[in-house]
Amino acid sequence: MGFLGVLIRNLVAGPSTDPFPFGETFTPATLRGRVEYHPADCVACRACEQVCVGGAIRFDKTPEGLRFLLWHDSCTFCGLCAFYCPTEGITLTDDWHLAHPQSRKFAMVEEGTIPTIRCAACGAQALATAPAAALFDHPPTPAEVEEMRSYCPRCRRKVAAERKAS
């Protein structure tokens, strides 16, 4: 007859229901939700595209630069992209409000472009990616990062070698 005790306890304790969808609900700190892309931190290594299990990430070369596309309707929220990203250019937020009507199906996209620039030193066309940490022998200042960003990969190595030597 133990079940009667359980039932009475349940009745006395009252509902343990979360108020959602009529009220607020909780979100665990480690929840993996909507993906965020930060073009400024991206080194365009495209490791995320390689490891994405759902095939949700895609890089396209466009006249403006290298475009990053992530379709949330194909994303498994496994977090592999964020795990393999060397610069935290891609992160997972805890936003899980992803249910959407069919009309917004192809709007569930995270988008970003790394712009194409002319190298400040040689004038060659290059992507303004974030500079790799190996280019500096000390933690770089934001100004140094922005300067490095304006060079093409070859000029970056040249500039970095000169500075390390001096």
Binding site: L11, A13, G14, P15, T17
Partner: peptide
């Protein structure tokens, strides 16, 4: 029945 299962019902 819902209350006995700790639901709102």
């Amino acid at each position: 029945a819902a209350r006995l299962q700790r639901r709102v019902g």
